[in-house]
Design a protein around this nucleic acid. Structure first.
Lengths: 125, 125
DNA sequence: CCAATATTCCAACAATCGATGGATTGTTAA
DNA sequence: TTAACAATCCATCGATTGTTGGAATATTGG
């Protein structure tokens, strides 16, 4: 049964060309970096104010190397920026978009209760 | 340094204090589900049109159980919705929000070249 | 130079993840 | 009921991940 054309329901949406494989991979990498509670918390911490590694480690009561490793992942996908100042290396959110992305996810998590099935069908879990 | 006050396009987003731990965990779970190229591709495929598991498996030349497992992850965080119709189970994007999230990430990946250092001194949007 | 401090690099390790085949459940038709 | 098909559940396996201690690097100050 191959009926992939006869179920109307999707409005004609301007499809901005399908993302390339490279783009999908890049996006997945970003999401993967975001997909860890500790890294996410670190990002939100940086949203408040920039900080150096030792300060962050002290703040979250974690090992230095642990925090450094987390920052390395976040920095690897440019979610945070690095800046050296004397002996310290300061990290900061790359830009406001990052925060938006996170808050979008939090939003989605909060409302997904019934929004999920809304446009599709009503079902009960 | 720019203050978040006079942005001419965003609805008044009240800074929602700091997200709770549960919210962070939930967001991380969503990001983790998004953090896999195959799952991401599956989502984009569903953005085109809903489909049942076997159709998706056939479409992407993957095992049925593999696709089912991927969908299970996506469904687990309500990124996609499930609907049973006769013998088939149809999956669809949970809502448009999901697509926005993905395109935001792709966007970020594309522009992250110089956006990284922007936040530290002068930023431009 | 050497010492002290801040951070990253490296090499384990346990924990988790994704794919997969086979068993199981669910649905329809005879 | 049995048969056929669709999808999920379960157990396993190989690969990857996150943490961590110790070594290496970088920077500043004697």
């Amino acid at each position: 049964m191959r009926r992939s054309g006869t179920h109307g329901g999707h409005p004609p949406r301007p499809r901005p060309s399908l993302p390339s494989r490279a783009q999908i991979d890049a996006a997945a990498e970003i999401f993967r970096a975001l997909g860890d509670p500790e890294r996410l918390r670190l990002l939100l911490r940086l949203a408040g104010s920039q900080a150096c590694v030792s300060e962050l480690a002290d703040d979250e009561a974690e090992k230095l190397t642990t925090v450094s490793a987390r920052l390395r992942v976040l920095s690897g996908v440019r979610l945070v920026s690095r800046r050296r100042e004397a002996k310290h290396v300061f990290y900061a959110l790359a830009d406001e978009h990052v925060l938006q992305l996170i808050h979008n996810a939090i939003d989605h998590a909060g409302e997904s209760r019934n929004a999920a099935a809304a446009a599709f069908n009503q079902e009960e879990d």
